[in-house]
Design a protein around this nucleic acid. Structure first.
Lengths: 227, 227
DNA sequence: GTCTATAACCGGATAGAC
DNA sequence: GTCTATCCGGTTATAGAC
C-alpha cells in the first residue's frame, strides 16, 4: 500500500530518477497525457520497474503534492518570521499557495479529481495522506500561533484544520480561474482572509456565542468520530 | 459532446435499455467494477453500439445523476406543499437527499470524483451540467420561496445557489459516513440546517451588515464573472 | 442518415522469470 | 531490483445493415 522505500543505493537512485521524470512530465504534458510508459522511457527503466517503486500512478501524485508543499513552506518562512498581523499572515500564506502552484495549474485539475476520490489511497482525508495532511495543518497552526491576534481557545483549537480546508477550497476555485495572472483568485483570497479575521473577532459577540459554540462543537464531533 | 438523442423508435428502445442496464450494474457492482462491456452484454448490444448513444462512461453518470434528482424531487413534493417553516423544509429536503441516495452509497464515491474533475464534461460547475444544475438550484429556490420566512432580498437572491453548494458538501460528508443508518450525516444535517436558518436571521444585526454585504458581493462576483 | 457490429488501439496494472 | 509478456477495460475506426 505505502510507497516502498528502496533498500539499496542503486534503488535509491532509480526511485529518485523515476520521481523526477514523473514530476517533469506532469508539468510538461499534464497528468493524463503522461503515461507510465513515458515516465519509464525517460528514466531509461522498464515499465515494470517503475511499479516496483510506485504501486500506482496515483502514488506519484502524492509525491508531487509533497513537493509543492515543501516549496510553499519555504516560500512563506520569511513572512511568518517577519509579520505578526494575522490577516497579513493568512493573506500572504494563501497568495503564496497559488503562486507556488501556478506552474502546475494545467495539471491541477486532474490531480484534484484523482485525489478527491474517497476510495483513492491518496484522499486527503484518508490514512495514507495523514503525514502530509498533518504537516500542512501544522503550517496553518504556525500561521495562527505566530500572530499577535488574541483568539479564544475553542476557536484556536479548530482554526488550523479549518484553514487547511479553506486552502483546498481556494485551490479548487483557482483551478477554474482563467483570468489573466489568476487575478480573480487573488481577489477572492484578499476578500476571504479579511472576512475570516473579521469573523473571528465577531465571534465574541454575546449574540453569536450560542452559534459559535454549536459550530465548534459540530466541527469537533466531525473530526473526532464517536466510533 | 452532448448525448445523442435517438431518431428512431428502435434507437429509443436501445438507448433506454443501455441506460437501465448501466444504472442496475452501477448499483450492483459499483462504478469501476461495471465495465462498458458488461453493460453492453446485459443489454444484448455490441460494445460499439453503446458508444453510439453515450459518448463515454461518464455520460452515463450524468443520467444517473438526473435519475436520483428526479427521485428526490418527487420525494419532497408533499413536504414542500405542506410545511411552511424554513428550517423544517430545509431539514426535510436534506434528509431526503441522503435517503434517496442511500442505495447508491457504495457507488457515490467514485462518481463524485469522476464528476469533480474540472476537465470532465460532467463537472457540476461546467456547461454540460447546466440544465441539471439549474433544476436542482430551482428546487432549492422553491424550498426558500415557499417558506414563511422573511428573508432580505440580497440574501434570498444568493440562497438557492448556496444551498445547492451546501447539498454537495453534505453529500461528500455522507460518502465518508460509515455510521449505522448514516446517523452521523443526519445529525450533521439537523445541526447545519438549524445554523443556516439562525445565521439568516442574525444577518440583520447592524454589526453584521458590513460582512454580509461583503460576503454577498463576493458570491455575486464569483457567480457572474466580470469577463 | 440511423443503427449495429467487429476489430483494433492505448495505457494502467500485474505475473513471473532472471 | 529489473525485465518481458500479458491482461484488462475505456475508447475509436470503420465497415456493413436497416
Amino acid at each position: 500500500m505505502a510507497i516502498a522505500s528502496p533498500k539499496t543505493r542503486r534503488g535509491e537512485t532509480s526511485r529518485a530518477a523515476i520521481l523526477s521524470a514523473a514530476l517533469d512530465l506532469f508539468q510538461e504534458r499534464g497528468y493524463e497525457a503522461t503515461t507510465m510508459r513515458s515516465i519509464a522511457e525517460r528514466t531509461r527503466v522498464s515499465l515494470g520497474s517503475s511499479y516496483h517503486y510506485f504501486p500506482s500512478k496515483e502514488h506519484l501524485v502524492l509525491e508531487f503534492y509533497r513537493h509543492t508543499h515543501e516549496l510553499h513552506a519555504a516560500a512563506i518562512a520569511p513572512l511568518l518570521r517577519r509579520d505578526k498581523d494575522l490577516a497579513a499572515r493568512l493573506r500572504g500564506t494563501m497568495r503564496s499557495v497559488v503562486v507556488t502552484c501556478e506552474p502546475f495549474h494545467a495539471v491541477a485539475g486532474s490531480i484534484f479529481s484523482t485525489v478527491a476520490n474517497p476510495s483513492s489511497p491518496l484522499n486527503p482525508f484518508g490514512a495514507a495522506a495523514k503525514p502530509l495532511r498533518d504537516e500542512v495543518v501544522a503550517l496553518y497552526a504556525e500561521v495562527v500561533r505566530g500572530s499577535d491576534a488574541r483568539i479564544p481557545a475553542d476557536i484556536a483549537e479548530m482554526l488550523p484544520l479549518t484553514l487547511w480546508l479553506y486552502q483546498m477550497g481556494i485551490l479548487y476555485f483557482w483551478i477554474f480561474d482563467r483570468s489573466p495572472g489568476r487575478l480573480r483568485t487573488l481577489e477572492v483570497i484578499d476578500e476571504t482572509t479579511d472576512l475570516i479575521v473579521r469573523l473571528i473577532s465577531l465571534a465574541n459577540l454575546p449574540l453569536l456565542r450560542g452559534s459559535r459554540k454549536r459550530v465548534l462543537g459540530l466541527m469537533k464531533s466531525i473530526v473526532e468520530p464517536p466510533s
